[in-house]
Amino acid sequence: MLPELLAAAAATAAAGCVYLAAAARVVKQYERGVVFRLGRLAGGVREPGFTLVVPFADRLHKVNMQIVTLPVPAQEGITRDNVTVRVDAVVYFRVVDAASALVKVEDYKFAVSQMAQTSLRSIIGKSELDDLLSNREKLNEGLELMIDSPAVGWGVQVDRVEIKDVSLPDTMKRSMARQAEADRERRARIINADAELQASKKLAEAAKEMSEQPAALQLRLLQTVVAVAAEKNSTLVLPFPVELLRFLERAQEHPTGQ
């Protein structure tokens, strides 16, 4: 009798080990488990750790809950101001409801990718070129709302959408470069003209002051001579004497015939 009991206990233990091995599952920390029993959703979502399923009847599907970085292929379109551009983007999303992500959509990653491409083309058609180049934050928010609205029903939440690059035709790049160059040249001319205006006003004031003090003109001439001699480091020969300047000054103060 005892050998038969031992044999039965050993068989039961072996059967229990086989059952445990077939039923044991491990869900990782960044995953959630969804059990389908005979094709139907059974119970709630399995949390991370050790869990058991019914062998041959249950199927455990693990869903990754980490943030997924999904690149959106470059989409070509025509902006509202009739410019052909190619725009690519990147979508950051994560699964918030593992059961809905498996039941309500066949492939949630593919669905989000197609929705992102469609929304990106729609954004291109509704925007102008200047918005795509300089106002991307507003476009990112609008693109995020367009993708997130249907994704909520799939158990997916879109965290962020970023427009990465805007490619322009070569002809448009050359036109924008010429426009920027012309604008810089216009500003340079305005600055030079303003400088000339300010300089002329100062020169007029200086001439007025020198006209009141004739000796200032001679001092200014001597300063100019010193500056030129220091810069060129050479001998400077005046074509007329300083006394001639004094004579001209006296002649200007006492015109002939008065």
Rank of each mutant, 00 (worst) to 15 (best):
E4P: 05
A8W: 10
A9F: 14
A11N: 10
A11Q: 08
T12I: 14
A14Y: 00
C17I: 15
V18M: 09
L20C: 09
L20N: 06
A21R: 14
E31A: 01
G33T: 04
R40P: 03
G43F: 10
E47C: 07
F50P: 06
F56P: 02
A57V: 13
K62N: 09
V63M: 03
M65E: 03
I67L: 11
V68C: 06
E76S: 11
T79E: 05
N82P: 01
V85W: 02
V85I: 11
D88C: 00
V91G: 00
F93S: 01
F93T: 00
V95L: 03
A98M: 01
S100V: 07
V105M: 03
A111V: 01
S113I: 02
Q114W: 11
M115W: 05
A116G: 02
I123N: 00
G125F: 07
S127V: 00
S127H: 01
S134G: 07
N135M: 05
N135V: 00
K138Q: 10
N140C: 13
N140W: 00
E141G: 13
A151S: 15
V152R: 15
G153K: 03
G153D: 15
W154L: 12
V156C: 01
Q157K: 14
Q157C: 06
Q157D: 07
D159G: 05
E162H: 06
E162Q: 14
I163V: 13
I163W: 04
V166T: 07
L168G: 00
P169E: 03
T171W: 14
K173Y: 04
R174P: 05
S175F: 14
A180R: 15
E181I: 08
R187D: 14
A188S: 09
A188G: 02
R189E: 14
R189P: 03
R189S: 09
I190W: 11
E196F: 14
A199I: 10
A199N: 10
S200I: 03
K201M: 13
K201G: 07
A204K: 11
K208N: 08
A216N: 02
Q218N: 05
L222T: 13
T224S: 11
A230M: 08
N233T: 08
S234D: 09
F240Y: 05
P241V: 10
E243I: 05
E249T: 13
Q252H: 15
Q252V: 12
Q252R: 13
E253D: 07
E253N: 12
